[in-house]
């Protein structure tokens, strides 16, 4: 297991390195300059040269890349051109917000998806299965930003049950330093997390339904029922564990979806996370922020997949045995 884990970690580091390298060269190759932010801003050629020198952009691309790598190894992600602050500080502000949003969405995704999938499998072919299945398909077919806009319009603007954006109420909770303001934060989290979570849940439910249907027809389930176990125990203990494997794979795959989906959801709900930060940085050709965001996002996605692999091994003893004997 340890060898396997070390091998997977090494592969993960290689993947992150590749993503960062590709991002670095692609963003530098993109047309446009980081020092031309506004039409009415007047920078002389001398100033542009000075700024280029100051930020090391006058060097060759390979030189800049090596410098970037050296700084990354030392924990220095550089200085943002547009935000006028260290990239690490900007990312440190944004990461907890995106992480919280992704985590909340993940909980909604799997809690709702698993429950719905099990319900559909148990009620296979009946009205409940058909209605909830089509409902899930409808939600799954919606672009995430569109669903966000609909929720915003209905629950934010029309019904006024939820705030229409932001992280907290800036008047009442300028800093999240009281329990009441913690609840205010959760209240602001509701719509963006629901938006991301519902789309994911619809997909998870479809996988879970298929997996459960396959499992509950197998002999060991029939045997469990024949032993007189209660139906709830048969389903939730015997069948569910065996039906979880494809969903655990989905858990690993959910991370890229959550982070890319967060880009759109953060924009719709004015949620100050990594997605908004990265998109703005791309438009402003803020190279250090783009590469810094790519580094962290890819690391988190790779980590998510690694966790999924570990969970897979936990859920399926055959995998554990294979990796131990390999």
């Amino acid at each position: 297991m340890a060898t396997w884990l070390v091998r997977r970690l090494a592969a993960s580091i290689a993947i992150v390195f590749a993503v960062v390298t590709i991002t670095f060269f692609v963003i530098h190759a993109a047309p446009g300059s980081p020092f031309l932010p506004a039409e009415s801003q007047h920078l002389t050629p001398e100033t542009l040269r000075r700024l280029s020198t100051e930020f090391g952009l006058d060097r060759s691309l390979p030189e800049q890349y090596l410098l970037f790598l050296r700084n990354v190894v030392r924990g220095n992600l550089g200085q943002s051109f547009a935000l006028r602050r260290p990239v690490a500080d900007a990312l440190a502000d944004a990461i907890p917000n995106t992480f919280t949003l992704a985590l909340a969405a993940l909980i909604i995704d799997f809690a709702l998806g698993l429950a719905l999938g099990i319900y559909q499998a148990v009620r296979a072919g009946r009205v409940g299965d058909v209605v909830s299945g089509n409902g899930a398909l409808l939600v799954n077919s919606m672009p995430v930003f569109w669903l966000g806009l609909v929720l915003l319009l209905v629950f934010g603007q029309w019904l006024r049950w939820a705030p229409v954006g932001g992280l907290s109420n800036p008047v009442l909770c300028p800093r999240l330093d009281s329990p009441a303001c913690g609840l205010d934060f959760l209240w602001h989290l509701t719509l963006p997390a629901l938006t991301l979570g519902l789309v994911g849940a619809a997909s998870t439910a479809r996988y879970q339904r298929a997996a459960m249907l396959e499992v509950i027809r197998q002999d060991f389930v029939r045997t469990a029922r024949a032993k007189g176990l209660r139906e709830r125990r048969v389903l939730l203990v015997h069948a569910l564990r065996n039906a979880l494997l494809p969903v655990i794979t989905l858990f690993g795959l959910a991370f890229p979806f959550l982070f890319t989906g967060a880009v759109l959801v953060e924009t719709v709900f004015a949620w100050p996370g990594m997605g908004r930060l990265a998109v703005n940085a791309i438009f402003q050709r803020d190279y250090p922020v783009v590469t810094g965001a790519a580094l962290l996002t890819s690391a988190m996605v790779v980590l998510g997949n690694l966790i999924a692999d570990v969970l897979y091994a936990v859920a399926d003893p055959r995998i554990r045995v294979r990796s131990e004997t390999a």
């Binding site: 915003l152 934010g156 603007q157 006024r160 705030p163 229409v164 954006g165 932001g166 719709v268 004015a270």
Partner: peptide, 14 residues
């Protein structure tokens, strides 16, 4: 993120 969201916040009382 944009002016439309700003106007929505205004209308919603945020």
């Amino acid at each position: 993120p944009d002016q439309t969201v700003a106007v929505t916040q205004l209308i919603a009382g945020d």
